[in-house]
């Protein structure tokens, strides 16, 4: 018994060491990034890892002036497109899920099977057709093609359906009907509030996914006034910043900062959401 306890303690020590190492591995690149954002290019060239911030934040920021990297423009565009996409996805996925759960109609089961079938079809491999389509109707250099397709989000419909199946009692719907509420009114005023927890989790994921997406924005947006954050970031890889290490780190930091804020405020829900996404029963 004693030896078992000793071996357990050794194993536990190993576990903590590995976990702490992995945690450092997660944080360290961002730490280097934030600190180097405050250091001058010369300091970074002398010694690229430092645990002490320096005082060159303002001069690094000044490098962006007059150049194509404009974090404010990228931030606003990303906010608009990700915010719009999230609203569309959350509202219409809830509506579609409600249609699947609350009403019995002939095509209900085939429609659900269809949603399952297209769950994983990615936008990326149909990008050529999407680009040509958007080019023809003049929607390139517009944020609209980043927003409207979110109305049809199969995976969110799937998730919302599972949630509604577990929480919705049709008695509520029936009593609303007796009170004379229309179906659409019932959905907006009674069902949506019930779905709030599920909507919040799904909203976070849609927002972050949309904020981070690069491929579709990259092929559609060529006007730098319309660039979203990831395209803005990709400019930092260009030649004009080759020798401006401090500025590159600052630019990267600015794009990460909003995500860090979201993540550390909502990490509890995000982790729970990831776990939930995998449980299909």
């Amino acid at each position: 018994m004693k030896s078992l306890k000793a071996s357990t303690n050794i194993t536990k020590t190993i576990i903590y060491v590995v976990c702490i190492f992995l945690a450092i591995l997660s944080v360290f690149p961002f730490l280097v990034m934030f600190i180097n954002a405050t250091r001058s290019t010369f300091q970074i060239q002398q010694d690229s890892v430092s645990l002490l911030p320096s005082k060159y934040l303002a001069s690094n920021w000044a490098v962006f002036k007059g150049k194509s990297f404009n974090p404010v423009v990228g931030f606003v565009n990303s906010m608009l497109s990700s915010g719009g996409a999230t609203l569309c996805a959350v509202y219409f996925s809830s509506l579609t899920a409600y249609a699947l759960v609350a009403y019995s109609w002939k095509l209900r089961q085939p429609f659900f099977t269809f949603i399952l079938a297209v769950l994983m079809i990615p936008a990326q491999v149909t990008g050529i057709g999407f680009y040509q389509f958007m080019y023809r109707i003049g929607w390139t250099n517009s944020l609209l093609p980043l927003i409207f397709p979110a109305i049809a989000s199969p995976s969110m419909v799937f998730f919302m359906r599972q949630y509604l199946m577990a929480t919705l009692s049709l008695d509520i719907v029936n009593s609303a009907r007796i009170d004379g509420a229309g179906e659409f009114y019932t959905f907006n005023r009674i069902i949506l509030p019930i779905m709030k927890p599920a909507m919040a989790t799904q909203a976070i994921f849609t927002f972050v996914f949309s904020w981070n997406s690069l491929f579709i924005p990259l092929i559609l947006l060529t006007n730098s006034k319309k660039y979203t954050m990831p395209i803005m970031v990709s400019l930092l890889r260009g030649d004009i910043y080759k020798t401006e290490y401090g500025a590159v780190y600052l630019g990267l930091s600015l794009t990460v900062l909003p995500l860090f804020v979201i993540y550390f405020l909502l990490s509890k829900y995000i982790i729970a959401g990831v776990a939930l996404g995998a449980l299909k029963e």
Binding site: P29, L252, V256, F264, S267
Partner: peptide, 22 residues
């Protein structure tokens, strides 16, 4: 630990690629 180990997943891949390049 979960919060820290999951964290890189929500950061923009484009940013991470350029960060690692540096």
């Amino acid at each position: 630990f979960k919060v820290l180990l999951y964290m890189p997943n929500i950061i923009t891949a484009a940013t991470i690629a350029i960060l690692f390049n540096s």
